[in-house]
Design a protein around this nucleic acid. Structure first.
Lengths: 223, 223
DNA sequence: GTCTATAGTCGGATAGAC
DNA sequence: GTCTATCCGACTATAGAC
């Protein structure tokens, strides 16, 4: 039996935070319409009325979850992106250094996007938002995707000695990102086609090494 | 005023077919839960009760739409896949012929996946089904994705002179497909990052030529 | 801040006339 | 096969006690 002054939460987290955690999972799995406020409240061990109280509405909770993803993702990628952005700020990079940064970039993205269990819920959330962009898409794009894409394109421009504004640089950056993202976006299809049940650590390393090899080949020969 | 014996449909299509057409669009845009039977019936210019009558339930209509996608996609890709499958059946291919088939393969997939307006609705449908695989996922995978993936991996094995069962062949095939799929799966993000409003014919050709270049570089150097 | 109870709406499916 | 009318369950949001 709890003492009178104890908060009624199950864990130490606030109801607000538990609702956001639940939202990441439940919206990710079922989508905005597929998720009901009852599911969300149950998963968070919170009361149904806590959603309109803390977030105004179901949609408010959805946007709060998008913002949370951006914040956490920024924490994960900050060291890498700062390193790249700092290096690019000081003019053109020596080819070796740029290639090493590029390998670091793809390895880190594979680890975060494909390997991180935290990303499981996030990825579905983000992908659904891309299918039918709403207010949360701007939050995700401006807070996260743009910076990641810019870093990759900047490195590419430096390695290929082309202008950052050359559209072929952007296209190439997207294609390279695509080689990583496919293992996340089409995870079920990829796993089934490989006859795998999951991406274990060892298999992640196979993927990282394959992407590095492709990047090297593309960057060695691209015109 | 229609004669007594005329069917009550607006167009020549049967109610059943109009419902499937509507389902492709509406489920694609809003997802299974996001789409209501009323939306579906309105879009198809059909009666609400026609859905349970023709398909048993909303879910039955959803599965019928998945089957329709598989059938149409098979029509689109049949010439290409038959050409590849036939060529692979007669033992190892000369490198030049295999490369030409590979270019044909990527060009066709870019045209269908990125360029076809028909694919707009389908792609979202398929991607949502990957996020939360249900009964329709098996229909899509077995009827479509497997054959496309197998053709690509078969070509790759032939070009790289590796066993078809070598997992690195499958991984490489997925990575190459990823470079194409990213322009479909992350269409909104890609367009925004490129500052484009749509993938025009001319831009599709840019993408096709870029993918061909990447494929050549990867296949020339891969070990 | 958290709870119960409930209002008000909209969902999918059905019954039965035509 | 197609229609109207309707049932009933599930949904989000709110009111008001504590």
């Amino acid at each position: 039996m709890r003492a009178r002054s104890d908060p009624p939460q199950v864990s130490g987290e606030t109801t607000r935070q538990r609702l956001i955690d639940a939202a990441l999972q439940v919206f990710g799995e079922f989508g905005f319409e597929g998720a009901s406020t009852r599911m969300l409240a149950d998963k968070a061990d919170a009361n149904l009325a806590a959603i309109p109280y803390h977030f105004g509405s179901k949609e408010g909770l959805y946007c709060a979850a998008a913002q949370y993803i951006v914040d956490r993702m920024a924490q994960h990628t900050a060291p890498l992106l700062e390193q790249i952005e700092h290096a690019l700020r000081n003019g053109p990079l020596p080819r070796n250094q740029a290639l090493e940064l590029m390998h670091n970039y793809t390895d880190t993205l594979v680890a975060i996007l494909v390997g991180s269990s935290e990303a499981d819920g996030w990825a579905a959330f983000i992908m659904r938002e891309q299918l039918q962009p709403g207010a949360a898409f701007d939050v995700l794009y401006e807070g996260m995707m743009r910076r990641v894409g810019d870093a990759g394109a900047g490195l590419l421009a430096s390695i290929l000695k082309r202008s950052r504004s050359d559209p072929s640089i952007n296209l190439r950056a997207i294609a390279i990102l695509g080689q990583i993202l496919v293992f996340r976006n089409c995870r079920q299809t990829a796993l089934r086609s490989l006859g795998w049940k999951e991406f274990s650590v060892e298999r992640l390393e196979q993927i990282q090494s394959l992407i590095r090899e492709h990047v090297d080949l593309i960057l060695a020969g691209a015109v």
